Simulated assay, not measured.
Amino acid sequence: MRQGAVPEVHLFSGSHGICRLRPKNGNGTSRTSQSHALYRLLDQLGDYLSPILNKVGGRLDAIETKLFEQPTRLTAYEISLVRRDIIALRRMLRPMLPVMAQLEGEEFPQLPQALDLYWGNVLDHLERAADILADYQEVIDGLAATSESLATQRTNEVVRALTIISTIMLPLAVVSGIYGMNIAGLPFADHPWAAVYAAALMIVVVGGMLALFKLRRWICRPFNDYLRT
C-alpha cells in the first residue's frame, strides 16, 4: 500500500454490486468493522438460501401431487430440472462448510475472537441448509424412481391388454379361416344357419377364455381400464 493511501475492503454481494468499507480517519480500517461486515455479508447470503429452499420444497410437493394424481410426460422433465437445481445448490454450498468450520474452530490473527460465535451462527445456517438439501435429494431420487416405476407399470398394462386382445382373436381367426376356405365336408358347412353356429361358437370360445383369464387373475380389473390406459 502506498504512503498515505486509505485502505479499503471490497466485498462482493451478488447482483448488489460491491460493498465498500472506508474508514472515516486515515489511520487504517478497523479490524472489527471489517470482520463484522464480512459476517453480515455471509449471514445475509445464508439467509438468502431460505426462500430458495422453500421454493424447491414447493416444487417437490407439486411434482409429488401431479405424479400420483395426473402424471404427464412433463413430470419427468420437471423432476430433472429440480434435481439439477438441487445438485447446483449442493455444489455451491459444499465448499463453504469447511471454510466456516475453520473460521469457527481456529484462531486467526486477522480476525477478532469475539466473532467466533458469529461464525458459528453462519455455520449453523449453512449446515441446516445442507441437511435440507440432502433430504430434498433423497426425495427427488424417490420421485424419479416412482415416476419410472409408474411408467413401466403403464407400459406393462398396455402390453397386457394387447396380449389379451391377440389371444382372444387367435381362435376366432382360426374358426373363420377354416370355414372361409370353402372345403367340402366341414361340419354345418351346408347348413342354412352355419353362420349363426359359427358366431355362437366364437362367442363361447371368447367367453371361456375370458373366464379362464379371470380365474387365473390375469385380468385384475375391468377390461375397459386397460383400454383407457
Rank of each mutant, 00 (worst) to 15 (best):
A5R: 09
M92Q: 11
Q3T: 15
T65E: 00
Q3Y: 12
L93N: 04
S50M: 08
H10M: 13
Q137H: 09
H125G: 11
G14W: 05
T163R: 11
R84P: 03
Q113D: 14
I52C: 05
P222D: 15
M96W: 04
T65L: 02
P98M: 02
A130G: 12
T72D: 09
V205K: 03
V204M: 13
S33M: 09
P98D: 03
Y48L: 02
I178R: 06
L186Y: 07
M96Q: 13
M1P: 08
A151K: 00
I87Y: 01
F188P: 00
G105W: 11
R160G: 04
V6I: 08
E106Q: 05
L81A: 10
G14Y: 07
A151I: 09
A76N: 04
H16Q: 11
N224P: 06
V204A: 12
E138W: 02
K214P: 07
E104H: 01
V9G: 02
Y136L: 09
Q70W: 05
G120M: 09
N54K: 05
H36S: 12
L150H: 00
Q153E: 10
R73Q: 07
E148T: 13
A195P: 01
L227F: 15
I86S: 00
P222W: 15
G46D: 03
Y118F: 15
R90T: 00
R83T: 07
L53R: 02
G142C: 06
I87C: 06
P109D: 12
L67Y: 00
S176D: 11
E104R: 09
L170P: 06
R94S: 04
L215Q: 14
D135C: 05
P112N: 11
V174F: 15
Q70K: 08
Q3P: 02
A101L: 03
E127P: 00
S147E: 06
N121A: 12
P71A: 04
Y118D: 13
T72A: 11
Y136A: 00
I168M: 03
S35G: 14
R22Q: 09
E127A: 03
H10G: 07
R128Y: 05
I164F: 00
L162Y: 15
R128T: 10
L97M: 09
A101W: 04
R91N: 06
S176F: 13
E157T: 11
L42W: 02
P51W: 12
R20D: 12
L41C: 14
P192Y: 11
G17Y: 08
R2S: 08
A76K: 01
R83G: 01
R73L: 08
D61E: 07
H125N: 07
L115M: 10
Y136F: 14
N121Q: 08
I132Y: 05
L49H: 01
W193K: 03
G46H: 03
C19M: 13
S149K: 10
L186T: 12
M92N: 04
D47M: 06
W193F: 13
A195T: 08
L42Q: 02
V175I: 12
L11C: 06
R154E: 15
K66R: 10
L170N: 13
A199I: 04
Q44V: 05
F223W: 14
T155C: 03
P71W: 02
A129C: 10
A211M: 11
M169E: 13
C19L: 14
L74Q: 12
P7R: 08
D141I: 02
W193D: 07
A200H: 04
L210F: 06
L186Q: 08
I52V: 04
V6A: 07
R228F: 13
T72P: 01
